[in-house]
Simulated scan of single mutants.
Amino acid sequence: MQHDLMFKRLENEGCGTVLVEIDGAAFHARAGETVAAAVLAAGMIPSRTTPLSGSSRAPYCMMGVCFECLVEVDGVPNVQGCMTLVVEGMKILPQTGARHLSMAEQEMYS
């Protein structure tokens, strides 16, 4: 399936761009757009897998309700892509399964 046909951007004259890295590839995202919109435009589908079954997921509601848009941003897992704006130099990776807790987080939650 060709994802670029599924998510065609509307023309937006005069819109600036920021250079981000999406799953290891350079991508010119539109200034002011969300990480989830950039991920879809770049074709990073799926953008995450579920912790239990490993099934594929991608941004869905685009308004912060469903949590299907979770990605890793600049080394921070579980970032809600639809609620986060892209910034120059941002590194975006797919969220694979459950995030791993640091020793400090494990102690805090135990």
Rank of each mutant, 00 (worst) to 15 (best):
D4E: 09
L5D: 13
M6K: 13
F7A: 06
K8F: 06
K8E: 14
R9V: 07
R9W: 05
E13H: 08
G14E: 04
G14P: 04
G14S: 04
C15Q: 11
G16L: 09
T17Q: 10
V18A: 13
L19S: 14
L19N: 11
L19F: 04
V20P: 09
V20M: 06
E21K: 11
I22L: 12
I22T: 08
D23Q: 06
A25V: 08
A26F: 03
A26P: 10
F27M: 05
F27N: 09
H28C: 11
A29P: 12
R30T: 03
R30N: 09
R30S: 08
A31W: 01
V35P: 09
V35F: 06
V35Q: 05
A36D: 05
A36V: 02
A36Y: 02
A37K: 14
A37D: 13
A38Q: 08
V39C: 06
V39D: 04
L40W: 00
A42M: 05
M44A: 07
I45D: 02
P46G: 04
P46Q: 04
S47H: 01
S47R: 01
S47C: 09
R48Q: 04
R48D: 02
T49V: 00
T49H: 02
T49N: 02
T49W: 01
T50G: 08
P51H: 00
S53E: 04
G54E: 00
G54T: 00
G54L: 00
S55L: 03
S56Q: 09
R57M: 01
P59G: 02
C61R: 12
M62F: 14
M63N: 14
M63G: 15
M63H: 15
G64I: 10
V65C: 12
C66N: 11
C66L: 12
C66E: 06
F67A: 13
E68D: 15
E68S: 15
C69T: 04
L70Q: 14
L70V: 11
V71W: 03
D74C: 02
G75C: 09
G75H: 04
V76M: 10
P77K: 01
N78C: 07
N78M: 08
N78H: 07
Q80G: 08
G81T: 01
G81A: 03
M83D: 05
T84V: 02
T84Y: 00
T84A: 00
V86H: 06
V86N: 06
V86L: 08
V87N: 10
V87E: 10
G89E: 04
K91C: 13
I92A: 15
I92R: 13
I92H: 12
L93K: 15
P94R: 12
T96G: 15
G97H: 06
G97C: 05
L101G: 15
S102C: 00
E105Y: 00
E107Q: 14
E107R: 14
E107D: 13
Y109Q: 13
Y109R: 11
S110F: 09
